[in-house]
Design a protein around this nucleic acid. Structure first.
Lengths: 219, 219
DNA sequence: AAACCCCTCCCTCCACAGAGGGAGGGACAA
DNA sequence: TTGTCCCTCCCTCTGTGGAGGGAGGGGTTT
């Protein structure tokens, strides 16, 4: 029996998946929950073999849950299949890097989902064409990690300022624009890069070499 | 003749300073420019004795220019007077440490500026009361170079988590303590290191090698 | 023309962050 | 013992940060 946990903030999705999976032989949905927090709470109890994890959720999102699971790398760590409404370019890579086995758009046919669950239970992956294309494209460009070109020039400037440790007001002065505009740019940077706050953006900017580490903080 | 270069991204400021300084005997403004990049380009050519340097500029800012000047410590290195709109606590100390002779708020009376220029030409300093107070306070506290050993073991642990880009809640889980306790630690870290927010703390932690740069953000 | 992207700025709403202050318990040293 | 420092957690209060909208102008492509 493959024990499955469903994590999604949409009730319809939870019920739909449960319905589909419960009809499958050898598959048992042991629970479902609507938030990342709940998921982390119930996983140690329910001990699922496979977690179907929605990427976009209020509170702890899919990436955060994945990260958290990696933090406590116990033996019984479940396999994770990521579900998402969007083919969000960057999150695919991040999720994969964080150990997600499959990454399925919610438009995926149900039997592909089942397929992915069975594969995940034995450590295998199922990739939808769209996702595969994204990953292949990354590899083809010889670039597992430089989503910097997702950003517009102005956004890159803002990111560089973030990497220097500057606040929105400081950035607005440095780059000669309104504080509100800075916030707009910061928000799109976070969205495009799949990060959750400015600190992560700063670190990312440093990793990309946008600012030499020893020049950040005006140090 | 004291050869002066003016570096400020505000045209009004450049013109104003030039006007004032050109009226002075023995002082000659040999040029002005609007960016740090330009400044670094023209300094070897114009060979100014004194550079009036704005702190806040797009691109290379004042501190970056200072650092760059120190990198190439030629004999003809000009004396630098830092100008700024804000009495930014931390930048004062950094600028001084990087070799700025005087640090003047832009509210400074013009004859004080002239005074500072004449002083700088012979290696002297002019300090406004506000700036002086800041520096004295630093020295009084023993002006530590913000070393990690100011921090307690627990604070260093928290700082390492900050450098990974984690939120307070995530840290509280990772280190098994209350969210409030994390906030307490973060606050004392910022206070002890003279930083203004968690992003700067994260950068500092990375600079100190508390976490390898490529391991931050979960790799 | 229409569609699209980028940059700019505006708004509301809510959560987190950080300051400031209090407080208890444990370890250790004078 | 008293004092000091560390760790823990509590509280209130204010500012920033970030989400999620909308909107106008400029640029390019189709």
């Amino acid at each position: 029996m493959i024990r499955v946990l469903i994590v999604d903030d949409h009730e319809v999705v939870r019920h739909g998946l449960r319905f589909v999976l419960d009809q499958e032989d050898g598959v048992e949905v042991v629970g479902d929950c609507a938030s990342g927090e709940r998921a982390l709470a119930v996983i140690p109890v329910l001990r699922p073999d496979v977690v179907l994890l929605d990427m976009v959720m209020p509170g702890l999102d899919g990436l955060a849950v994945l990260r958290r699971l990696n933090d406590a790398p116990e033996a019984g760590r479940p396999a994770v299949i990521v579900l998402t409404s969007f083919l969000d370019d960057d999150r695919v890579v991040r999720a994969v890097r964080l150990g997600a086995l499959s990454y399925l758009p919610k438009t995926t046919a149900v039997d592909r989902v089942v397929e992915a669950v069975r594969a995940a239970a034995v450590g295998g992956s199922v990739l939808e064409p769209g996702v595969a294309a994204l990953l292949v494209e990354r590899v083809r460009r010889g670039d597992p990690r430089r989503p910097l070109d997702l950003l517009t020039p102005r956004e890159r400037e803002v990111l560089a300022e973030l990497a220097r440790g500057r606040s929105n007001s400081e950035i607005s002065r440095a780059l000669r624009m309104g504080r509100e505009t800075v916030k707009t740019h910061v928000s799109s940077i976070l969205a495009k890069l799949g990060l959750s706050d400015r600190t992560q953006a700063a670190i990312f900017g440093l990793q990309q070499g946008l600012v030499p580490l020893d020049e950040a903080l005006d140090g």
